[in-house]
Simulated assay, not measured.
Amino acid sequence: MAATLYLGIDGVLHPRAISFTKGERLPKLRDAGHSLFENHLILERALEQCPHTVVIVHSWWVPLLGYRRTVEAIPERLRTRIIGATCRGNRRLPFALTSATTRREWLRQDILRRRPATPVLLDCDFCQVLSMLADSACVVDARMGLATIGAAERLVSLLQDANGSD
């Protein structure tokens, strides 16, 4: 049984301080001394220990930049695990504000639609933790992300439990 990792990007792979500017290929990180995707190696190492885990992107990047552009921005070894996103992201069909514009609602709807056997959430926002994910969420510090002390170990433990210890 493969775990499904719902991955927040901002606040996990790099600090949450991000600005989206119309026309820019990628958002700008507003936290001196940090860089986009600076924690990707931590996530890669965690996923190496859980080889059957698949990833769903759970981020504002998708509706704002498009699914393809978002996935292309993610480091390659992580990109190969991605099977979708919680929100539609098609640049030709612009994102519209609706009743389902919160990331939490995207997550809820995606879980209902996909019905993953063992979902795990990795995010920096406690508000994203649905009751059904209370025991399978790894919430990290929004500035340190996966570099938060103990976060990588918690994530590996959740994924191994979800994958039946791979």
Rank of each mutant, 00 (worst) to 15 (best):
M1R: 11
A2T: 08
A3P: 08
A3L: 03
A3Y: 09
T4F: 11
L7R: 03
G8A: 04
G8P: 08
I9C: 04
H14M: 10
P15N: 07
R16T: 13
A17N: 05
T21H: 07
T21P: 02
K22S: 14
K22I: 15
G23E: 00
R25Q: 13
R25N: 10
L26Y: 10
L26M: 14
L26C: 08
L26P: 10
P27L: 08
L29P: 03
L29G: 04
L29T: 03
D31A: 12
A32I: 05
G33P: 13
H34G: 04
S35A: 13
S35K: 15
L36W: 07
F37M: 03
L41Y: 07
I42Y: 09
I42C: 03
E44K: 08
E44N: 09
R45G: 07
L47H: 05
E48S: 09
E48D: 11
E48P: 02
Q49M: 10
C50H: 05
P51L: 07
H52S: 08
T53P: 15
V54I: 14
V54N: 13
V55N: 01
H58Y: 08
W61K: 02
P63N: 02
L64H: 02
Y67H: 06
R68C: 03
R69W: 10
R69A: 12
V71Y: 11
E72L: 15
E72G: 05
P75T: 01
E76F: 14
R77G: 13
L78V: 00
R81M: 09
I82Y: 07
I83N: 11
G84D: 04
G84N: 08
A85R: 06
C87H: 02
C87K: 06
R88Y: 14
G89S: 09
N90Y: 11
R92L: 15
P94Q: 05
P94C: 01
F95V: 06
F95A: 10
A96H: 04
A96T: 13
T98P: 09
T98N: 12
A100R: 12
A100W: 14
T101S: 15
T102I: 01
R103D: 10
R103L: 05
W106S: 00
W106L: 01
L107F: 01
R108F: 01
D110W: 07
I111K: 03
L112P: 03
L112K: 05
R113A: 05
R113W: 15
R114V: 06
R114Y: 08
P116L: 06
P116W: 14
A117G: 11
T118N: 15
T118D: 12
V120Y: 00
L121P: 07
D123V: 01
C124A: 13
D125F: 03
C127S: 14
Q128D: 12
Q128R: 09
L130V: 02
L130A: 09
D141N: 14
D141C: 06
A142I: 10
A142H: 05
R143Q: 14
R143T: 11
R143W: 14
R143C: 10
M144L: 15
G145L: 04
G145C: 06
L146M: 11
A147V: 07
T148H: 13
I149E: 15
I149F: 12
A151M: 03
A152F: 09
A152P: 00
V156H: 06
V156F: 08
V156M: 02
L158Y: 00
L159I: 04
Q160C: 06
Q160A: 08
A162S: 11
A162V: 05
G164K: 09
